Amino acid sequence: MTKIIGITGGIASGKSTVVEEIRQAGYQVVDADAVVHGLQAKGGQLYQALLDWLGPEILTADGQLDRPKLSQLIFSSPEHQARSAQLQNDIIRQALAKERDRLAQSEDIFFMDIPLLVELDYLDWFDAIWLVYVDEDKQVQRLMERNGYNQAQAQQRIVAQMPLLEKKKYATLVLDNNGSLEDLQKQVRQALKNL
Score class of each variant (00 low, 15 high):
Ala82Met: 06
Gly63His: 04
Ala85Glu: 15
Leu117Arg: 12
Ala104Ile: 07
Gln48Gly: 01
Ala61Gly: 10
Gln28Glu: 15
Ala82Leu: 05
Gln153His: 01
Glu57Asp: 14
Lys168Ile: 04
Leu46Asp: 01
Ala41Asp: 10
Ile158Lys: 09
Gly55Cys: 02
Pro56Cys: 00
Gly148Arg: 11
Asp135Phe: 07
Met1Trp: 00
Ala34Tyr: 06
Leu87Ala: 03
Ile114Met: 09
Lys42Leu: 00
Val188Cys: 05
Ala171Phe: 03
Asp127Ile: 02
Ile58Cys: 03
Ile5Cys: 05
Gln153Lys: 10
Lys15Tyr: 10
Asp137Trp: 11
Lys138Gly: 05
Gly179Val: 03
Val140Tyr: 04
Tyr27Cys: 12
Tyr122Ala: 11
Glu145Gln: 15
Asn194Val: 00
Val174Gly: 07
Ala152Gln: 15
Met162Pro: 11
Asp52Val: 00
Glu57Ala: 09
Glu20Asn: 15
Asp52Cys: 02
Gln156Met: 06
Val36Pro: 09
Glu99Ser: 10
Met112Ser: 13
Leu59Gly: 09
Asp135Thr: 11
Gln88Cys: 12
Gln88Asn: 12
Ala61Trp: 02
Tyr47Cys: 02
Gln161Trp: 02
Gln24Asn: 15
Lys42Asn: 00
Ala95Val: 04
Leu184Phe: 08
Leu184Asn: 14
Trp130Ile: 07
Phe126Arg: 12
Thr8Lys: 07
Pro68Glu: 01
Ile92Trp: 04
Asp137Ala: 14
